[in-house]
Write a protein that binds this DNA or RNA. Structure first.
Lengths: 243, 243
DNA sequence: CCTATCTAGTGGTCTAGTCCTTTTAATGTA
DNA sequence: TACATTAAAAGGACTAGACCACTAGATAGG
């Protein structure tokens, strides 16, 4: 069972044991584990040691706790590869997937320094903040927050936000998108991302920050921060050699 | 300082305190924190409570521990421009950093299906496999594995592998690199990456897979898989709109 | 001068408790 | 019946120790 004299730490032995039980379907997702006190007594070890083992599995995303209730088994990840680097909606259509959105937040804000400096506007200028969950075939793949200045984009409604933002800009407003500047980094999901993307603590995410510029002048028309599920997203880029 | 009667947990108060000290540059990256025992004595709390605070900051990627040495502050990210196809060495020079490499593996292989199909060669063709740790100012930032077919690149030595691969191709061989295809994805580090990049279990990494093509024809000249530390690396891309 | 050993200090692991808050269900009461 | 109270059980926070393994620098011996 558990060898207290082994050089392998007890908490690690317990971690492996619980992992095995999950893999062999002894513990089904949603099921709860024996309580920390039970496990401690059963294996004749300290509760703190049990907690260390469970903590690690929580960080790995296999388990989660609920105070007063117990410790539960998370359910499995599913995998799917996507690619591309244009607008989300376009890219999804190109791949034969159905894009959709859920609007979380749509409001006019102002005075946020980080945003006003990126968009190169006055701190008193009104900015639309649009936060959406992006779905591909009804599966959440990204959490997207867009900032666009009202004085450049005009008036927006909150009821056509499930359409492509680029489409709105190009077809409806006749804007010409010139280029975009993007940065890509990887991180671990925060609590909000975990919640909306239905992922787990410790899961990696890709963070893409994009500023889009119009042909007419060098004024940015929008700034978007997108957080993608790393298990579902992958970016492909083809680029020429610069000399 | 730390309010033991506050409803806010002590470990959380300590976390915030350490974060502040890092942000206000009281702790410089690379610096080590007071030892766990010192912190415990200073704030008159248990060492286990100190450990809980530090554990969380380690998970967040702000700190890392080294057994027998101490707890240290992580440093900020490097950035790489992906708007053109540049090599690691070039990119580091552009940023005023000193690139270096440590050769882990240099050998001729053949018959690996994944490689032969990417490079579009026969399964009997010999391929150089070059695995290197990449350093910027003596800090490991990436683990890179390059595959290049002998029949296209010619004979390579294992003693000039600390130089730029592109430099070898372009200056010494007079090859003309036309373009590259890259994919970017995020994942969690595996054991090998943890070991060589000096990172920790559960840390995110960026994986860039690149195939480089020559001007002469559409034959790939090399395929490289690079695994970057997500805490130190960030990619920037500027791209035109595709219609 | 070099090497082996010692030692102080670090994080790693572990114990056996205590007291707290939250959840849930059983119990009691109007 | 409906609602308040209570108690058991869960995880959360915390303590004051213990011993281990590893690191690095000081020290002693050849």
């Amino acid at each position: 069972m558990i060898d207290k004299n082994s050089p392998i730490p007890i908490y690690y032995q317990l971690e492996q044991k619980i992992k095995q039980l999950i893999e062999s379907q002894k513990f089904v997702p949603g099921d709860f584990l024996p309580s920390e006190r039970e496990l401690a007594e059963k294996y004749n070890i300290s509760r703190m040691t049990v907690r260390q083992a469970i903590n690690n599995l929580v960080t790995e995303g296999l388990l989660y706790r609920e105070k007063g209730k117990g410790t539960f088994v998370c359910d499995k990840k599913f995998e799917q590869d996507l690619s591309g680097l244009t607008s989300f909606s376009e890219e999804m259509y190109n791949r034969g997937l159905t894009p959709s959105s859920q609007l979380l937040n749509f409001q006019l804000i102002y005075g946020i320094h980080k945003i006003t400096s990126i968009l190169n506007i006055e701190s008193s200028d009104l900015v639309y903040e649009i936060k959406r969950i992006r779905f591909a075939n009804d599966e959440p793949v990204a959490l997207e927050t867009t900032y666009t200045p009202q004085k450049r984009i005009g008036t927006l409604d909150d009821d056509n936000m499930d359409r492509s933002f680029y489409e709105i800009m190009e077809k409806n407003r006749n804007f010409n998108i010139a280029y975009g500047e993007q940065s890509i980094e990887a991180s671990l999901a925060n609590d909000e991302e975990i919640k909306y993307l239905k992922i787990h603590k410790g899961d990696p995410v890709l963070i893409i920050k994009r500023t889009t510029f119009l042909q007419s002048g060098k004024q940015p028309i929008e700034y978007t921060k997108s957080v993608y599920r790393a298990d579902k997203y992958k970016f492909n880029i083809r680029m020429p050699r610069n000399y």
